[in-house]
Write a protein that binds this DNA or RNA. Structure first.
Lengths: 155, 155
DNA sequence: TATTTAGTTCGGAACAAAGTAAACTAAAAA
DNA sequence: TTTTTAGTTTACTTTGTTCCGAACTAAATA
């Protein structure tokens, strides 16, 4: 695959990833901005480069970049004697995806527990079904930390 | 806690859960409908009962229930000689939440792999960071089935 | 056959979200 | 001090979502 072809595929991938992030609730421009920073070979983009690459207005870029920074996904560096900001993806805690799922499980479990607490009959079919779900959630929550340790030991 | 108080708390919980499902991308009425079927003591609601409980129009109820059925979260039974549909939450595969996360991990991993494939330098900082993420994803994907088996053996 | 019941579908109003252009700000350069 | 640079904020437009009422359909009952 030659360079031109690769770059074309990278730009297609940015569009695909943008749609992927949209499905996860991210704003279209924010999703494409994040994808740009992940996909392209260049690892640092200035504000104007992002505006130029994605063909968006400065205001959209400003809003999207602010959002990505608040979400802790993107950061910028500055270089002395250069007023431009160099944006790049933030190298996050690598277990972040797992920890996010743990948090979701924890929250969902809390809700189920609150439902059970308010049931007139804690042995109704729905109650029993939910109790089973809760026990699965607890089991996985308990074992995630062990899996993390195992992963780190493995090499 | 007396019955009246309990029912009041159940209705509050429906609102809270509705907002929770909205954040996950569900339509407001659909989220509240699902919450109603999960929270209340009654385990089967007719169309009219749902309209009445949630104070919504028949059209909203119709759209929300169709969505929940397409998503495979809610189902209905009918009783012979009774044209009404009795809606209830579907007792799904209890590992569904885990399997959904597995699917998300799988999809996210695919995207990262595609990014790496298109990189000019597969050892750039971003590439290395993403490769580490991929190896974590693979590790967890591999171990989820074992955890499921362990959970089932446990009792 | 006419009416009632149990929902579905259509059309539109109200509101929210996402993007733009243009005005603005704050810091650096001339 | 004035101008330029690098973005931010504001006001507005476009687009999309969500809901409702009213008209409709299909099956059962009278």
């Amino acid at each position: 695959m030659n360079t031109e072809e690769r770059i074309k595929k990278q730009k297609q991938l940015i569009e695909t990833m943008g749609q992927h992030y949209e499905k996860e609730g991210m704003q279209p421009v924010a999703g494409r901005t994040l994808a740009l920073l992940m996909v392209m070979d260049k690892e640092e983009f200035t504000f104007d480069e992002i505006v130029e690459e994605l063909q968006i207005s400065k205001s959209s870029a400003s809003v999207a970049l602010k959002l990505l920074q608040v979400k802790n996904i993107v950061e910028y560096k500055t270089h002395p004697g250069d007023r431009k900001r160099y944006f790049r993806i933030k190298r996050q805690e690598p277990f972040l995806l797992i920890d996010d799922f743990k948090q979701k499980l924890t929250r969902d479990k809390q809700i189920l527990e609150e439902i059970i607490e308010l049931k007139a009959d804690p042995n109704s079919e729905n109650s029993q079904f939910m109790k089973n779900l809760i026990s699965i959630m607890e089991f996985f929550l308990d074992h995630f930390e062990k899996l993390k340790e195992e992963f780190l030991k493995k090499d």
